[in-house]
Amino acid sequence: MLRPEDIKLLLGLSDNMLDCAGIRLTLKTIYVPKTIGELRMNDKVLPRYEEIKCDPICRLSSGAYIVRYNEYVEIPNGYMGLVFPRSSLLRMGATIYTAV
């Protein structure tokens, strides 16, 4: 576990990119799946997605979405990043699924 000050130095971030919960990410786009994906023994087919327009608020109904952030975070070799949803997302019934 690293302190925000350590993350700042390790990743070369500015002060305004950090808060008490870690790296501050900003929303770029939201997509909704339009087709189903397929997992096969030796292959996969990813679903097609459609971008949701936000003017400037996104009102989302129940379901799955793909979120793209404005920031790209490059984790150095020998480290691993964990993503947790902010409590404000959890209070709205949203969560984030991640993978290593």
Results as ranks from 00 to 15, higher is better:
N42W: 12
L46Q: 11
E74A: 10
I7T: 00
G93A: 02
L2P: 03
P47K: 15
L25P: 01
Y72D: 06
E74C: 09
R24M: 11
P4H: 01
V100A: 06
P76R: 09
A94L: 02
S61K: 12
P56E: 13
E5Y: 00
L10D: 08
S14Q: 07
V73N: 11
C20H: 05
N70T: 09
R48I: 14
V100Y: 03
M92L: 11
Y65C: 01
R3A: 14
P76A: 12
C58V: 11
E38Y: 15
M17G: 04
D15Q: 08
I57S: 12
V67D: 15
L10F: 08
N16M: 01
L11Q: 05
L89Q: 03
D43V: 11
G78W: 01
F84W: 06
G78N: 09
G93M: 00
S14I: 04
P47C: 13
C58Q: 13
S14H: 03
I7K: 01
M92R: 13
S87A: 14
N16R: 06
P76N: 09
C20Q: 09
R3H: 14
V32I: 15
R40A: 14
E74N: 12
I96L: 12
Y49S: 01
S62A: 12
E71Q: 14
R91A: 01
I7P: 00
D55H: 15
K34R: 08
M92I: 03
L89P: 03
G78S: 10
F84G: 03
R40I: 12
I23F: 07
C54R: 13
M41I: 12
L9A: 12
D15G: 05
D55K: 15
L89S: 02
K34H: 02
D19C: 11
M17S: 10
P33M: 04
S61W: 07
R48Y: 14
I75L: 09
Y49C: 00
K8F: 09
K44N: 13
L82S: 03
I96N: 04
